[in-house]
Design a protein around this nucleic acid. Structure first.
Lengths: 195, 195, 195, 195
DNA sequence: CATGAATGAGAATTCATTCAT
DNA sequence: TATGAATGAATTCTCATTCAT
């Protein structure tokens, strides 16, 4: 629906330009050009508007991840780097407005108790590793999967949330890749003298 | 002040037993046994109460970390494991009530835009690595430090925030250690053809 | 009109199944299968719908009373009992759904300031008495007529409104008859010393 | 409390002068001279204000009834007449303002589903009868008690609710007395030829 | 130091009604 | 006739904060 799209767009604009605390139903009505009544024709309550916006953004991320996953060419490192880069994009690092929106939505998602939807990303990383695995590798257990996938997502989320300037550097991408590869390869390695 | 302590204690109790949305100044007055007026004798506004509680909790963590850091015995792995275990404790994994408080304070800290105070931990981990480092190791750059330290903290914070049952397992601690060690050792390793 | 009948039927269903406070125009539209616009084609405003439903129910009662009045056979007691029994039925005591509707409509009639339409019943009772009256009886004055007729109606209305279980007993009917007969015969009786 | 009294007084004034539909919390605040916040310091919600006013009025009636009951002198007829007269007063028949308030409160009581509190009056009437009873009288059963007491109350309530001018006549009081006495004496009477 | 009655801006939500199609 | 998206005035209620005592 056109009206819903307009309302979500206005919601995003308020979030970006004025902050979450100014996102009141009356203010949204004014800004969107619709009346309060109209908002409540399409959303049962204020929370639902925010949740719809979060969901819309998340589904976009899911689509991008799915797209990247279809490309099975290249080495493990190359494939993992593609995933990392996609996440980078997914967190909207490039345009300032979008970054602010991501920022706001992340906060709201936490405030509303929504879990970070890492399922797709988790699967992606683990799948690449599984594909490349020779017989000698033990599959990752629950804790390992959790730590590996969440650490990647959370470090990105954290950097986004605090607007770290490192986010735009290649070094940052390299460091994340190092985190993933180091973790995955660690098992194979014999315990050295210094550890 | 005794009064301030009582107020913060009551604040914590409300957070744990009733949730952040019930933490209103009037309710705090009723629960603490003081009047609203008294609250405003000690805190300029509502936000200050929450921030004071967060700060109190954070200083406790800082103290524990500092304590652990003083113990420079053992291998790199042992020292890192001690740090990880301290963090575990710091996130109050054992007693349920405290976990709920940590949970609530994390959310509030995010809502108030407070940065996660990883400085002490970051220093701790990096210092251990530096101590053990031979000449051939290149020091970590800004992105690497950021990724390594935040990933550890954020994965713990995330697990706490969502009440993951993995938190109480040894496997989880092992996985975090693997994350750290894998990252640190990764540089030294020659890039293999498949990875 | 078929449409009007359907709308009133849906109104009754909402009143019975969900209560008066859920009787909103939008809800009625949804439940009736018509659009809000259509409702306003047939009724000038919300109140008119309720009033139409009340009127429909009242005309049914009037019809029944008129029918009973045509039967002039039997003793005074028998004829009065027939009237009382008709009122019983009129208040829809038997089927639960109808009782709820009566209940709801009574409340609404009061809320809208509608007078209880006792005219027909009043006439019926007084007429029976007048018919059987011998010369020695003084006709009822305005206050007496009022008190006699309203007391019967109001006691029934009250019992209905509060869902009294007595309503379904024969004793209850007997008591109402006793109220009427006692009142009518009281005049004739010589005042005793103690009563 | 002075504030509560002022608020209830303002509530009564609005009810009398402007009608129940104008009794909004904001309007009450304006009229009472207090702020909305103050209203909510003393009442949990809008309904509670109305209920408090109803309860206050009812307790006044209860007190008057209790007072009249203490006087056990005179014949049954005299004692019953005293009760009837008290009810008359209780329904505030004399001053116009009070009548409007009674009117409004009655409607509100019905709208809020409150039962008419006839207990005290019921007891009063039945007790007088019981006191005067000789051995030959059968005590009233549940239906009889219900019909007798409610008919008296409801006919008064009805007359008040519709502002009947009969209320101020002696005839009216006589008629009610006739209703009571007729009912009570009816049992003793042998079925005559005309009934 | 402590109190707590009073404040009032402002938030979410409802619902009867309109009107262009 | 019928539709239903849009309206917006009005309502209830919350809660941080003030200030006279």
């Amino acid at each position: 629906m056109q009206t819903v799209a307009t309302l979500l767009q206005a919601t995003a604009r308020i979030l970006v330009e004025e902050g979450a605390e100014r996102l009141t139903t009356n203010h949204l009505a004014r800004k969107s050009g619709f009346s309060i009544g109209t908002i409540y024709q399409y959303f049962p309550n204020r929370e639902a508007i925010v949740l719809a916006l979060i969901e819309r953004q998340r589904s976009k991320v899911r689509e991008r991840i799915a797209l990247v996953m279809q490309d099975r060419t290249g080495s493990v490192e190359e494939r993992l780097r593609r995933i990392v880069r996609t996440l980078h994009d997914a967190f909207n690092l490039h345009r300032n407005a979008d970054q602010r929106l991501t920022f706001a939505l992340l906060r709201l998602a936490i405030a509303h108790g929504l879990p970070t939807p890492t399922d797709a990303i988790a699967e992606a990383i683990v799948a690449v590793w599984r594909d490349a695995q020779d017989a000698e590798h033990r599959p990752l257990n629950a804790s390992e999967t959790f730590v590996l996938t969440r650490s990647v997502i959370e470090v990105l989320r954290h950097a986004t949330l605090h607007g770290s300037p490192l986010l735009e550097t290649v070094e940052f991408e390299d460091a994340i890749l190092r985190l993933i590869l180091g973790f995955l390869r660690e098992e194979a390695r014999p315990a050295g003298p210094d550890a």
